[in-house]
Structure formats: C-alpha cells, structure tokens
Amino acid sequence: MERENNDFLVRMVNIHKWFGRVYALRGVDFEVRRGETVGLIGDNGAGKSTLIKILSGYHHADQGEIYFEGQRVSIRSPRDARGLGIETVYQEQALAPNLSISRNIFMGREPLRRLGLIDKKVMDEESMQALANLGLKLRSPDVPVVTLSGGERQGVAIARALHFKAKLVILDEPTVALSVKEVEEVLEFIRQLQREKVSVIFITHNLYHAFDIAERFVVMARGKKMADVKKEDTSPQGLSDLVLKSAFVAE
C-alpha cells in the first residue's frame, strides 16, 4: 500500500463537499501520478472546479482526505497549496493585468534587498530567463500583462509555475477564448511542463485539446467521478460519448 502511494504525487480520497444544501461533491477519488497529465472533463456544474479548488486551497472538503507525496495533508489556503508546490493557472485569475510581467511572475515572492525593498534587477533578469525557458520571447519585463495576447498571458503564468519549481500545475480552461494559433502555443507550454516532469491537471470543455495533451482522462458529472480512462483506451469520440452518457446516468 505504501509503495503504491509513492507513485502518486497527489491522491484525494472520498472527497465530499456541500455548499449549503447543494451536494457538490459526492465522495470523489482522484489522483495524479508524478509527471502525469490528467484531463479533467465534464459538463458545467459537474464538480470539476470545486474539486480543483479544494486542491488549491480555495475550498475545504467537508469530508475526505488528501495525500501529497504520500503524506496526509491539510490544505487550508492557497498559500498552503503553494507551499506544497501546487500552482494554479486560472483563466483571468492568475495575473494582475496592470502589473508588469516581472511583477506578476514574482507576485508574493519578490526577491529582496534590504528592508523589504524589491531587487528589481534580479526580478527582471530571472523573469526574462523563465520566459525564455518556455520559449517565450517578450520585449521587456516592464510591460503590463494586459498588453499581451491571451496565449502569452498563459505563458507568463506557466513560466511562473516552472520558475518556482511547481510539482503540480492546475490549468483551468487555459484554452478558452484563444485563437487557434494561441491554443497551439499554450499546448506547447504544457508540453514543456511535461518535459520537466511536472504533473498537470488540465480542465477543459474542449475534448480535442484535452485529448491532444493528456495521458489519462477523468470524467465527472453531478459531483461524482463517472469514468477514469487512459488515452490508449479511448478516442476523442469515445470521450465525448462518455461525457454525454455520464450526464444522463447521473440524472
């Protein structure tokens, strides 16, 4: 049992969550192996976001256990999650649009000189390095994020996760509202995460994007895990059928 545990980076066991009288998660088991990319799919209101927010410290499970690297952990805040090495890249929630690229990358973890003053030189150099590692060439670390394209913004958030040696990166709908070219760009960033052996949870509506990048798929509906399939055992069409069927079964 212990040996098997070691394979898993994170393991959520029998997670229950109520919001008032709404039973949002009904005993969900969910795990991610080291270096594995999992596609988390399902209809709106299926419980994907709730599950992930428990993992990233925004919500707290009413019942259930979370193990991280084999250890039982209690994640009470986003700060706790970050401390463990869990980084979340939420659409529109990861970056401060009017702050510069480097200030975004080092938000909350500013490199300091004396008296809490920011070491701007180190911050700027490391920011450009982190972006370059991801294959992203941006003109200046001083540019506000709002002036970047959607794909570049995702890149900044992912570069941040990589720079701070995240073990698990959660991407919540990273390809929504992006052009085809930008989607390809973002998928390439995720491949870079995979090459660096970072575990990834990829939440999406777009089964094709998920199929492209993930090794395993977890389908949720109505607060329950309905299916858990490996990529080699399915196809985009198969996944689509699963999502549809799950929605009806859960009714």
Partner: peptide
C-alpha cells in the same frame, strides 16, 4: 507590489499567497 496586486486582481494576489 502587494497593494497593486490586491487592487488589480484580488483573486490572483490571494492565489499567490
């Protein structure tokens, strides 16, 4: 930096600890 981040995008600031 925290002041700007808090005002600009509170959720992001919180997510960054």
């Amino acid at each position: 930096n925290w002041v700007y981040a808090t005002g600009d995008n509170r959720d992001a600031a919180r997510a960054m600890g």
